[in-house]
Amino acid sequence: MFDQLLECLNEQGAGVRAYDACARMARARVSEEPDNAAAYLLLAYVAQRFVESYDDQPLSVEAASEEFQQFTDIVKMLDKAEADASADARIAALNVVAAKLNTAPKTGD
């Protein structure tokens, strides 16, 4: 489900422009899929954070790979919780992701 965002990133090269498109797609899904609004909003936040950190800034391939891996991990965690279909699992995953994002602020934010 959420891995469509990963496909979007991959197809567009996982640069700033791709994350910007990904953030827009995630925000659109917030209203299109109200049952997953919180997850999509978090993913939009992650993608937008990348844009704000690296737009106009040098981005090494290594750093881009690390960022992509982090995004992939988050998507997989949310996908797994969604597949579980339990409300508790989904809320727990959302909280884990939110806490992870809060404790790892990007430089340049």
Binding site: A14, G15, V16, A18, L59, S60, E62
Partner: peptide, 19 residues
């Protein structure tokens, strides 16, 4: 900056040895 061994990723997703 010229860096062919540790290239940059540009906004478009293009990988470049120059920045």
């Amino acid at each position: 900056h010229f860096r062919s061994d540790e290239p940059y990723k540009l906004t478009s997703g293009l990988v470049s040895p120059v920045y």
